[in-house]
């Protein structure tokens, strides 16, 4: 079996090609000239804070809306001219729960099977297979309303997988789930991708989630600001990051700036210093600025640091 790193852009097979995509809602530009590819078999995460344009990108990819400028192709097929074929290749999980609470799990899946033109026999086979994989076989006759949030999300996943899509796309699939249900979903997705070779594209606003992906793209205010493997993006920054929260960050920043060896930056009220850090430096800082410092911490660069380095904004304050 191919390992994760062997997918990626090396193969000429492209599952998704975004080319110079722009989209606006009236005056508001949601996407501005976004171009990137997703390789066949990749598990790809699109990361961005709320309002970054990722949901618009998702809607374009799902064929719910059509591109205004630029082009978008799925397995080489254009989403406008070959929408019908594209739709056959896609399994879509929207952010809103698309399962019907008044129907049983089996009924929900049966309606979906008809929408995708599965035969009666195939429907039965696929319902058994998919529900077996997702561990919901014993819930098939339960009304969806009676299921927990995590189980309901699995039913949705089952629904989108029924017709054996080549590309599974999900819009913030773990929203509203508790941490254990969230990691469940991740495990299923990873397992599916590895056993079936299916390409997976998902959006998320959770930094720690994006770290699970083979490659990530980061969107900020409708523009692509980063595209690579998560480790690679972090490695690029190198060294460590010290973050300091202070009672009066402006004043502390001035003092730190007078110290020649450091290059502090004030980002949304938090002081960040990157570079090589030894324990001496931390304790020095702590002793020297004891009165101003509220909290001081040190760590390896995270995806948040990548985001800050690329945009000059903190991830959570960015919208």
């Amino acid at each position: 079996m191919a390992t994760v790193s062997e997918y990626s852009v090396m193969s000429d097979q492209r599952a998704i090609e975004f080319q110079a995509l722009s989209f606006s809602y009236g005056d508001r530009q949601a996407l501005n000239d976004v171009s990137f590819d997703v390789g066949v078999g990749e598990l790809f995460s699109l990361l961005g804070p709320n309002g970054s344009g990722k949901t618009t990108l998702f809607r374009l990819l799902s064929t719910l809306i059509t591109p205004q400028q630029g082009s978008l192709a799925v397995f080489g097929k254009d989403v406008i001219n070959q929408a019908h074929q594209v739709r056959h290749d896609l399994g879509v999980v929207f952010q809103a729960p698309g399962v019907d609470g008044k129907l049983s799990v089996r009924e929900n899946l049966a309606v979906q099977a008809v929408l995708y033109g599965l035969s009666k026999t195939d429907t039965r086979v696929r319902i058994d297979e998919v529900c077996g994989q997702l561990g919901i076989t014993d819930r098939l006759n339960d009304q969806v309303d009676e299921l927990s949030g995590g189980l309901r999300r699995r039913v949705e996943l089952a629904k989108s997988l029924l017709h054996r899509p080549r590309l599974l796309i999900m819009d913030e699939p773990t929203t509203g789930l508790d941490p254990s249900a969230r990691s469940d979903v991740w495990n299923y997705i990873r397992q599916l991708q590895q056993t079936t070779g299916m390409t997976v594209f998902m959006t998320t606003h959770l930094l720690e989630e994006a770290d699970h992906a083979d490659r990530i793209a980061i969107l900020h205010e409708g523009e692509l600001v980063a595209l690579d493997k998560p480790e690679a993006l972090r490695r690029e920054l190198g060294g460590d990051v010290i973050t300091i929260t202070a009672s009066d960050p402006e004043v502390l920043l001035k003092k730190l700036e007078e110290d020649d060896e450091l290059s502090p930056r004030l980002i949304d009220g938090v002081i960040r210093i990157s570079g090589t850090v030894d324990s001496q430096l931390i304790s020095d800082l702590h002793t020297r600025y004891h009165d101003e410092v509220q909290q001081i911490s040190v760590g390896k660069p995270s995806l948040e640091d990548v985001f800050i380095a690329r945009t000059g904004h903190q991830f959570w304050g960015a919208s």
């Binding site: 719910l64 019908h84 739709r87």
Partner: peptide
């Protein structure tokens, strides 16, 4: 939305 993105 699920119906709208299905091939129907």
């Amino acid at each position: 939305q699920g119906v709208l993105v299905a091939p129907v």
